[in-house]
Write a protein that binds this DNA or RNA. Structure first.
Length: 568
RNA sequence: GCGCUUGUAGCUCAGCUGGAUAGAGUACCUGGCUACGAACUAGGGGGUCGCAGGUUCGACUCCUGCCAAGCGCGCCA
């Protein structure tokens, strides 16, 4: 519909130029937008404002000229010039109710688009790396935010026609893994954090004790048996990593987050990919030796200082395998890669990108994309809960899921822009009342389902065909507002996917639910506005609108990984 | 000190990549069910969009400077 209006305006301006009403001027892109306020019609265009200066005409005068030259179109009821010079378009009724037919026809596919298709109409590949928690402890709220945001981005990209690969990267090769193993080993030997032999950077959490007990009891985890040998450091390390990976998998499953690929840092070493990456960087002349270490000239790619690649003890710093890993992503054919991670790691972005540029393999500047989420603070009983991995005070993701439920946790963690700080108020999330937006949206869905059940109970069966044929009977203010909101959904999905911004979906759903509740409630003020009226045509038209609304709520909630209950 | 991010109603946050009178929730005040589920809804009060400049027909949005908060600035990951 926007396209049609755009063409009409284009024709009008072309006519004006050829009849020399307008000088021949460069045209900016004609933007036609959905109006926010229904008194402004259905669609609006600001072209007269944009062209005012170059044409030498006053905006309102120019708008009037454009309207006069506008070709007739059966879909346009009338136009209006408003404010400083906006042209508002009022469309015939069927353009407003058409969205209902589209929703009914497309069902769960409604709202999807093909923006992720290439010129041949094939889905383009995108890889999204998220969570990527180190296997040194259970997942906490921060990981939860990464999981919720990352997973929703994946769902948005899929809905936009991309072929999405979800990937989890384990840093299972660094010093921290040795700390982990040492901590577990100490526990196996009966040493606690208060003993003098306890490792300096040891992990003190309760889960370490449990892990040690499992190992000593010889339990199996992911095909690895606990050897019950407290002196075997490497066996303990392998067991600990397997155990914690398994714990994380269980949490992620409970959080409804799945991955296609798990990559291991240790593999990059054993496959020689770290070594070959370093060789290329040296061969390309972007390194130098100093103070016994090997440095990468990251300053040539915008960093504020050069960075050590190989420490004087011979080991590589963490970002070297990161570069090797991203080179591998590129070689796997992903020209679009998104990394979702905590903002506390933002300094790695410059280094990884610099390393990739220095490899000189044709990777574009600014590749890969990053989505960073800010810190999550947790409030419980009105107090902030401090998160400290070593001290073991910890709000785990599984705690949250258990206490407030998967739906609420996911919604809360994804409902705000990733780059604003988030306070997770457990007391608020626990309230199953007014304050909780998740229930508000789910309730709207359940309410429609309830009406459908009522319809059957009262022998007022829902006849979809009859409903579709009588949509022009939808005329009340609340019905029109609801139609308008439904029509905005596809744009909302496309924009959210483009911006990697799933929080827009959360806001949209809040809005849609409000429209639905307002429509429903209008029936308690005016009985003739109820859905289940006696008139067959009107009732079924309304039930069709209700079903369409339900479908869009379900589709939207699905993008957030939140369930759409039929009963609550 | 430098870099990244943020600053919008008392509180928690949106604001659709420059548009019309800045919007929701919450809290506060006033109404609506012998129920198509009131986990809802109608209305009211509440704003120098951190501050100061600039860009233009128009700025919460873009630019510059300043103020404040969070996070980074390791031969840790």
């Amino acid at each position: 519909m926007k396209d049609i209006i755009q063409q009409l305006i284009q024709q009008a301006i072309d006519n004006m130029i050829s009849s020399e009403v307008l000088p021949s001027i460069a045209l900016p892109a004609i933007k036609v937008e959905r109006t926010r306020d229904s008194s402004h019609g259905d669609l609006a265009c600001n072209i007269a404002l944009a062209l005012a200066k170059s044409s030498g005409l006053a905006p309102r005068e120019l708008a009037a000229l454009i309207c006069e030259n506008l070709p007739d179109n059966e879909l346009v009821l009338s136009t209006d010039i408003a404010g400083p010079g906006f042209i508002n378009f009022f469309l015939v009724k069927t353009t407003q109710t058409d969205v209902v037919l589209n929703i009914i026809e497309q069902g769960e596919r409604f709202g999807q688009n093909q923006n992720g298709h290439d010129s041949k109409g094939q889905p383009k590949a995108v890889q999204v790396e998220f969570v990527s928690a180190n296997p040194t402890g259970p997942l906490h709220v921060g990981h939860g935010r990464g999981a919720a945001v990352g997973d929703s981005i994946c769902r948005l990209l899929s809905a936009s026609g991309w072929n999405v690969t979800r990937e989890f990267y384990y840093n299972d090769a660094g010093q921290q893994i040795n700390n982990l193993a040492a901590s577990v080993q100490s526990r196996c030997q009966g040493i606690g954090p208060n003993d003098p032999q306890w490792p300096e950077d040891g992990y003190r959490g309760e889960y370490i004790t449990e892990l040690a007990a499992y190992y000593m009891a010889g339990k199996m985890v992911n095909g690895i048996a606990g050897l019950a040998d407290a002196d075997n450091h490497s066996a303990i390390r392998d067991y600990a990593v397997a155990y914690l990976r398994n714990e994380q998998d269980i949490d992620l499953q409970a959080f409804r987050v799945e991955f296609d690929v798990f990559s291991l840092e240790s593999d990059l070493y054993t496959d020689g990919k770290v070594e070959s990456t370093v060789k290329t960087l040296i061969a390309n002349g972007f390194t130098y030796e100093s103070e016994g270490a090997l440095w990468l000239k990251t300053t040539e790619f915008g960093d504020d200082k050069d960075r050590v690649m190989r420490k004087s003890d011979g080991g590589y710093t963490y970002f070297v395998p990161d570069v090797a890993y991203h080179l591998e992503k590129w070689q796997r054919g992903f020209t679009t890669v998104i990394n979702e991670q905590g903002a506390d790691h933002h300094s790695t972005i410059t280094r990884v990108r610099a390393g990739l540029q220095a490899l000189q393999v044709g990777i574009p500047q600014g590749w890969p994309d990053y989505v960073l989420h800010q810190m999550v603070t947790v409030m419980r009983d009105g107090e902030e809960v401090k998160i400290s991995k070593r001290a073991g005070s910890y709000v785990t993701l599984s705690d949250l899921i258990e206490q407030v439920g998967c739906d609420t946790t996911r919604y809360f963690l994804v409902a705000r822009r990733a780059d604003s700080q988030l306070t997770f108020d457990i007391d608020l999330a626990l309230q199953k009342t007014n304050d909780n937006p998740v229930f508000y949206i789910q309730y709207a869905h359940a309410r429609v389902c309830s009406v459908m059940r009522q319809a059957a109970d009262k022998s007022l069966p829902f006849d979809l065909t009859l409903g579709k044929a009588n949509l022009e009977l939808l005329v009340t203010d609340t019905e029109l507002a609801l139609l308008k909101t439904l029509a905005a959904y596809p744009d909302c999905v496309a924009n959210s996917a483009r911006d990697f911004a799933p929080h827009n979906i959360a806001s949209y759903l809040r809005d849609l639910a409000a429209n639905l509740h307002a429509w429903y409630a209008s029936g308690s003020q005016q009985k003739e506005w109820q859905l289940l009226v006696a008139d067959d045509k009107l009732r079924n038209a309304r039930l069709t609108l209700a079903e369409a609304s339900r479908q869009v709520i379900e589709n939207g909630l699905n993008l957030l990984g939140v369930s759409a209950p039929t009963k609550m």
